[in-house]
């Protein structure tokens, strides 16, 4: 159970159980109902984005995306992701090493704190930054005197994004590091490896796919975050509008096609994320099946 989208492996190879073996009418009804629901809530929204974005032809799509404000929004979105993801990556690795490889009191409390941003409304996340750094905020007057602008500026947008994406990489890595145990690292130590070397050559390779998945999820959320960023952005065209904010702005300007063009870029991001997840699941399954085949066969001949 996860608050993100967990890597999920089918119970491959299990045949249909007694429930599936039963009456074909019930089976068809259940599948029909489920697919109807999936069509309305999954397939149609996706199809709609793609169709509407290209509704006025590819050339209009191109002009919309070459609009300077749109380009600025794309650049800002990329910049936010480029700053946010490494910050949460380093944090995720540190937290996973401390939590996954060591035992200490208060571990579950710390995990709960890391999970907190999942439970906080993005709007509230934006608000707390305004309370801290806004004109009437705690640090507002001091920042004003030193001519530092955080709210309605890039730092505020980054902070809001970092807040909402804190758990993503850490929560992928912690269970992985916990599950792989400490023995491989201990083995490296007995062979004389330093802590760093052990981490780079033993720990990191063993969690690399989970790490990559966490980065992809974190990136998707960082580029797509709307609520928290909306509160701290100030919506200054060409300066503090990210791509998702641009979608809203165009929508309110009754520029449907423009809104959908911007949205289609983000939808693409979502599809890439899902594609990567599918790839990862496929890899793990393949590796698992290979392991299954290799292990019980006992002694294997060389070069087989």
């Amino acid at each position: 159970m996860s608050r993100t989208i967990p890597i999920h492996l089918d119970s491959a190879g299990r045949g249909p159980g007694p429930a599936a073996a039963g009456s074909p009418a019930v089976r068809r009804m259940l599948i029909g109902l489920a697919l109807g629901f999936a069509a309305v809530f999954l397939v149609l929204p996706l199809a709609n984005v793609l169709v509407k974005a290209l509704g006025k032809g590819v050339s209009y799509y191109q002009t919309t995306l070459s609009d300077p404000d749109m380009r600025a929004a794309i650049r800002l979105t990329l910049a936010v992701a480029v700053i946010t993801v490494p910050l949460n990556l380093v944090f995720g690795l540190a937290a996973a090493w401390a939590i996954g490889k060591h035992s200490f009191r208060g571990k579950s409390l710390l995990i709960t704190l890391i999970d907190l941003p999942f439970s906080v409304s993005p709007v509230v996340a934006g608000l707390v930054l305004v309370v801290l750094f806004g004109a009437q905020g705690y640090l507002g007057p001091w920042l004003d005197r030193h001519d530092i602008r955080i709210i309605f500026n890039l730092p505020g947008i980054v902070m809001a994004t970092v807040f909402v994406t804190v758990p993503f990489i850490a929560r992928e890595l912690i269970p992985l590091m916990q599950a792989s145990g400490n023995e491989q690292e201990e083995a490296a130590l007995t062979l004389g490896a330093s802590g760093w070397r052990t981490f780079w050559h033993v720990t990191l390779p063993s969690v690399r796919w989970g790490l990559l998945y966490g980065v992809i999820l974190c990136n998707a959320r960082a580029m797509g975050e709307f609520g928290a960023v909306s509160v701290v952005s100030g919506h200054i065209a060409g300066l503090t509008d990210t791509l998702p904010l641009q979608v809203e702005k165009l929508y309110h300007e009754y520029n449907q096609t423009g809104a959908f063009a911007a949205a289609s870029l983000l939808a693409m991001l979502a599809l890439v994320t899902l594609g990567f997840k599918a790839l990862l699941e496929w890899r793990i399954r393949r590796r698992y099946e290979r392991g299954q085949r290799a292990a019980p066969s006992g002694r294997m001949e060389a070069g087989a």
């Binding site: 989208i5 709609n48 984005v49 797509g224 609520g227 998702p244 979608v247 959908f260 983000l266 979502a270």
Partner: peptide, 10 residues
């Protein structure tokens, strides 16, 4: 995976 603004729009 879909950004919420896009979900809202569509």
């Amino acid at each position: 995976a879909l950004p919420t603004a896009v979900a809202g729009l569509t």
